[in-house]
Design a binder for these strands. Structure first.
Length: 424
RNA sequence: GGAGAGAUGGCCGAGUCGGCUGAAGGCGCUCGCCUGCUAAGCGAGUGUGGGGGGAAACUUCCACCGAGGGUUCGAAUCCCUCUCUCUCCGCCA
């Protein structure tokens, strides 16, 4: 959520910022509601003041055993008027709340302008794509030939877009999870957490998935609970409504969770393989930081995610998302894209974002500086470190051999019981 | 699933028959004093959000005692609904 004061006082800037995303909210309607609210509030508060004062007088009179009937009758009408105004102000507040919850974050000044992913800007390219004698096979072909991925049986168990890993495939997925968690906890200083995979509506609202994107989520029948689309949601909410002390910051968490996405609106895209599933595994990185440090923290977050690809020796590139491609809650996002030889493209494998105080305001996550009055909102960041299924797919494709086998990256061998090659 | 108890400020904890209780008391924290140092002691201060005034320090008003409704001139205190926590029983990975 944006700061309502900022919106009030800088309507033009807010409009301009959101326009870069291609969004054009009705600021005039907001202005009207906001003005009306404050007009009513002034009257309401003075009536409440009157009520408080007179109620005290009534109490004093009664204590002395005197008659207070006249005042009581007078206050009866005041109380009635207060109730009317409260109802009136509520409609404006409901409108303002909905409006504010629907406003996306403002893009940071360093974010390139553009309206879709074709206008993202390249930051750097790392590693060299492997050369193959024959045509590179797609990971689903490799996986099915190795007998470690079975999409047909998964479809029978559940339906389309669910994975079934078998044997060394299941073990490789688990090895990747352990490898990533170990790197982040042991060398990058993150604390491992294992959160709930189901969260309530308030939690989902705090990080920005709700109220606008409910159709992207799986909701539990009969409950106001949702399956998490990313660990960002439960982990960022660990500190909801808390006042942290400044010397405890920064806080770094890493979590493995499965992620559940309805993938509404993506029919026909990536219909084969592990790229786009309703359920996938991800190791997530989440940071709570001091505002003045958040853009430096974004750079180190990106490095922490990149380190996984470097250790796995997978070729990748980093892009800065343009304003039109930026997620709802983010002020700035880097995507890391891994090389997928079969399709000859780079595919997103991590998304590292600074949300500034956007999520913190919704989730009411504040901090206090020592010796200073008042509280400030923390800045939150998160990034994938990494999407596990896509990493496994990238390994199958980049490490494939002409005989159908797949070499296991050296960094993973300790996690694979020393195995070096997957053979059919 | 059954029975009961509870939810108050950074923490602990008091709130009687509804009325100077934004909230006693304690701890913690901050500043000052005292003291060879430390500890102890003494004094003062110390919630959040919102509206108005002020360049600012600050000031004034309103709201907030798990959440939401209700009763009342007036609710932390009474009533209803919900959520969560704890205890006992049952069931269970």
């Amino acid at each position: 959520m944006l700061d309502i004061k900022l919106v009030r006082q800088n309507i033009q800037e807010v409009e301009a910022g959101l326009a870069k995303r291609g969004m054009h909210p009705d600021m005039a309607a907001f202005n009207d509601a906001d003005d009306n609210r404050r007009k009513i509030l002034a009257e309401l508060e003075s009536l409440r003041h009157q009520r408080n004062v007179v109620s005290d007088e009534i109490a004093a009179l009664k204590k002395r055993g005197e008659n207070a009937e006249a005042m009581v009758t007078e206050m009866r009408t005041v109380a009635g008027r207060i109730k009317e105004l409260e109802k009136e102000i509520q409609t404006h507040e409901a409108f303002i709340d909905t409006f504010m919850l629907g406003l996306a974050n403002l893009p940071h000044s360093s974010v390139p302008e553009g309206h879709d992913e074709t206008q993202n800007t390249l930051v750097k390219t790392e590693g060299t794509p492997p050369q193959f004698e024959n045509e590179a096979q797609a990971h689903w072909t490799i996986g099915e030939n190795l007998g470690i991925l079975d999409f047909n049986r998964a479809a029978a168990i559940t339906g389309a877009r669910f994975p079934l890993y078998l044997g060394a495939g299941a073990r490789l997925e688990r090895a990747l999870i352990n490898f990533m968690l170990d790197v982040h906890t042991r060398t990058h200083g993150y604390t491992e957490v294992l959160p709930p995979f189901i969260v309530n509506r308030a939690t989902m609202t705090h990080t920005g998935q709700l109220p606008k994107f409910e159709e992207d989520l799986f909701k539990l029948e009969g409950w106001d609970y949702f399956l998490i689309p990313t660990a960002e949601v439960p982990v960022t909410n660990i500190h909801q409504s808390e006042i942290l002390s400044a010397d405890k910051l920064p806080i770094y968490y890493t979590a493995y969770t499965p992620c559940f996405r309805s993938e509404a609106g993506s029919y026909g895209k990536d219909t084969r393989g592990l790229i786009r599933q309703h359920q996938f595994n991800k190791v997530e990185l989440v940071k709570f930081v001091l505002p003045e440090t958040s853009y430096n923290e974004l750079e180190t977050l990106l490095k922490d995610a990149e380190a996984i690809l470097q250790r796995l020796e997978l070729p990748y590139r980093v892009v800065t998302l343009c304003s039109g491609d930026l997620g709802f809650s983010a002020a700035k996002t880097y995507d890391i894209e891994v090389w997928m030889p079969a399709q000859g493209v780079y595919r997103e494998i991590s998304s590292c974002s600074n949300f500034e105080d956007f999520q913190a305001r919704r989730a009411n996550i504040r901090f206090k500086r020592k010796g200073q009055k008042g509280t400030e909102l923390v800045h939150t960041l998160n990034g994938s470190g990494l999407a596990v299924g896509r990493t496994l797919a990238a390994i199958l494709e980049n490490y494939q051999q002409s005989d159908g086998s797949v070499i296991i990256p050296e960094a993973l061998r300790d996690f694979m019981g020393g195995e070096e090659v997957l053979r059919p």
